[in-house]
């Protein structure tokens, strides 16, 4: 086993465990913490896939911005932890879990067909996934989607401000 494989396996186990904990915990803050752990392990997986820049961006954007926003809102609202772990009774919950396992099994069957000749990773050079190569692609072939993403963020920002601001007296 190479170092990469060990690292990727450990990160995978951490990712699955933390994902399960996200939906198992009652307290939203603890859930959010486990989601951060999940995002971190996915960043490690990106590293093993040759995405150095991607891993850094994952940490900065997801862990550093999105999840901080989540935690900020949770602590700001500070809702009391809910008594029930899940929305429906034990029978429905068990059924949902069973269906989930079944669904994963079905997906795995399909995925396993990749295991033959089509499942090998291409060999890539030093520059694969570097900031330079990603930037070049982003500003040439994907320039138009990139600009649209900028517009999307702008709209989201305006939307968030409008939605979250308190209606003061004298406004309609």
């Amino acid at each position: 086993m190479s170092l990469d494989t060990i690292l990727a396996s450990a990160a995978s186990i951490a990712a699955i465990f933390s994902a399960l904990m996200v939906i198992w915990q009652r307290n939203a803050v603890i859930s959010a913490l486990f989601l951060v752990l999940n995002l971190g392990s996915v960043a490690v997986l990106f590293l093993t896939l040759g995405g150095e820049f991607l891993a850094a961006v994952q940490v900065i954007v997801y862990a550093g911005a999105i999840m901080v926003l989540f935690l900020f809102v949770i602590t700001l609202l500070n809702p009391a932890p809910l008594k029930e772990r899940f929305a429906s009774g034990p029978v429905m919950t068990g059924l949902t879990f069973a269906l989930g396992v079944l669904f994963v099994a079905a997906l795995m069957r399909g995925i396993m067909s990749l295991a033959g000749a089509g499942g090998v990773m291409a060999s890539v050079g030093e520059e694969y996934g570097s900031a330079r190569s990603i930037g070049e692609l982003l500003f040439t072939a994907y320039l138009y989607p990139f600009e649209l993403a900028g517009v999307l963020l702008m709209v989201a920002m305006v939307g968030a401000v409008v939605l979250a601001r308190r209606q003061t007296a004298g406004e309609d």
């Binding site: 900065i60 862990a63 550093g64 911005a65 602590t75």
Partner: peptide
């Protein structure tokens, strides 16, 4: 690290967690 500066920025943004959790 070839993205060392980004790592620094990322770590700086991770420090917020301890602060917000300490307060909460």
């Amino acid at each position: 690290v070839s993205v060392g500066l980004l790592i620094l920025l990322g770590l700086a943004s991770l420090e917020v967690y301890g602060v917000v959790l300490a307060g909460w």
